[in-house]
Simulated assay, not measured.
Amino acid sequence: MLVGDRGMITQARVREDCAPAGLDWITALRAPQIQALAADDGPLQLSLFDERDLAEIESPDYPGERLIVCRNPALAGERARKRRELIEATEADLQRIKDRVRRARHPLKGAAAIGRAVGAVLGRRKVGKHFHCTITDTDFSFERDEAAIAREERLDGLYVIRTNLPAEALDAPATVRAYKSLARVERACRKCGEYSKILHDRSLDWLPAGHGRRALQLCGLWPGKVELQVP
């Protein structure tokens, strides 16, 4: 069974690699795919979470697959906070450009020059989709796209796990736990940089038999193999 993030197990990989090999897999949907499911007539409706934080849905866009929708209130709060900070910081930078364009002495002129300055700001924090900007040769104005912000906010804390495993093989809670095990692998592999620095001049015998050696195994720096266990 393959467990990978949304960038690793893509639709193309499912179609071209996993399906021909008969492999089972677990991955997650990207934000645009979740937004499509949450459209007005889509299968992902927020009322599913009135009394619980996990629901299983079906979609004709994913035939023969299971979609498990999870809600994490703590993650929702963190995403809302981060978005708010990024938007406010970008808004402050855009206001400075607006002031430069409208000042009396030596204003910033020309749509191309203004556009370059605005583009640099919007690209810095990746929140350009949350603003409407109007640029001319002699003026610049902007405003928040409140509708776009609201659409994104309503999905804060939601993530959708996608798998071809039947429920008889792995029920919804176990599938979620299997996907979350990926985070433990990623944390272990981040240790590899730290471990690799000391492999040149120290014996490996000092490493404990638990997480230290397991991290090296996951990263290919220790002989043998490690198997992930689904709790």
Score class of each variant (00 low, 15 high):
residue 127 V to T: 15
residue 131 F to I: 01
residue 131 F to M: 02
residue 131 F to Q: 01
residue 133 C to W: 03
residue 133 C to F: 04
residue 135 I to L: 11
residue 136 T to S: 15
residue 136 T to D: 08
residue 138 T to C: 00
residue 139 D to G: 05
residue 139 D to T: 00
residue 142 F to I: 00
residue 143 E to D: 08
residue 143 E to R: 14
residue 146 E to M: 05
residue 146 E to F: 09
residue 148 A to R: 12
residue 148 A to C: 04
residue 150 A to S: 04
residue 151 R to Y: 02
residue 151 R to P: 05
residue 154 R to I: 08
residue 157 G to Y: 09
residue 158 L to T: 06
residue 161 I to L: 15
residue 161 I to M: 15
residue 162 R to K: 14
residue 162 R to D: 11
residue 167 A to L: 13
residue 167 A to Q: 15
residue 175 T to R: 03
residue 175 T to D: 08
residue 178 A to I: 02
residue 178 A to S: 04
residue 179 Y to F: 15
residue 179 Y to A: 15
residue 180 K to A: 15
residue 181 S to L: 13
residue 181 S to Y: 01
residue 182 L to A: 13
residue 182 L to I: 14
residue 183 A to Y: 09
residue 184 R to V: 06
residue 184 R to G: 04
residue 185 V to P: 10
residue 186 E to I: 10
residue 186 E to R: 10
residue 188 A to Y: 10
residue 190 R to K: 13
residue 190 R to D: 11
residue 190 R to T: 08
residue 192 C to P: 00
residue 193 G to I: 08
residue 193 G to M: 10
residue 197 K to S: 08
residue 197 K to L: 10
residue 197 K to D: 10
residue 199 L to I: 02
residue 199 L to Y: 11
residue 200 H to L: 09
residue 200 H to R: 10
residue 201 D to L: 07
residue 201 D to F: 11
residue 203 S to N: 02
residue 203 S to K: 04
residue 204 L to I: 12
residue 205 D to Y: 08
residue 205 D to T: 07
residue 207 L to Y: 14
residue 207 L to T: 04
residue 210 G to N: 05
residue 212 G to F: 00
residue 215 A to S: 15
residue 215 A to I: 05
